[in-house]
Amino acid sequence: MKIIRRPRPHTFAKGTALTIGNFDGVHSGHAELFRRVVAAARAQGLVPTVVTLHPHPKEFFSSSFKLDRISTLRDRIIEMKRCGIEQVCVLPFDNNMAALSPQAFVQEVLLDQLNAKQVWVGDDFRFGAKRAGDFALLQALGNAHEFVVNDLAEVQRNGARVSSSNIREALKAGDVPHATDMLGHPLVYSGHIVHGKKLGRTLGFPTMNLRIAGRASALTGILAVWVHGLETAGQEQKPLPAVASMGVRPTVEHSDQILLETFIPDWQGNAYGKLLRIEVLAHIRPEQHFDSLDIMVTQMHKDTEKAMALLAANKPRISNTGC
Rank of each mutant, 00 (worst) to 15 (best):
I193M: 06
R5K: 13
E146R: 14
A170R: 13
P9I: 02
W120N: 02
L223I: 02
A104V: 13
N22Q: 11
H289R: 15
L219I: 02
D256H: 09
A43T: 08
F12P: 06
A233M: 12
V162T: 02
A312W: 00
N320S: 14
A144Y: 09
A213I: 08
I77V: 11
L260V: 01
D181P: 13
V50I: 09
E59F: 08
I318S: 11
Q118D: 12
A153E: 13
L152G: 06
S165H: 07
V155M: 07
L152N: 07
R211A: 05
P55K: 02
Q87S: 09
L33K: 03
G45D: 03
H228G: 09
A242W: 00
S71K: 03
G322Y: 11
M208E: 03
L110P: 05
S28L: 14
N158M: 11
M208I: 13
M296Y: 02
E79H: 09
K315L: 10
V26G: 03
K14R: 14
L276V: 14
E108N: 13
N158L: 13
P239V: 02
D181L: 14
N22D: 09
L183D: 00
T232M: 13
H10A: 15
P92E: 13
L137D: 04
T321H: 07
V297E: 03
V227C: 10
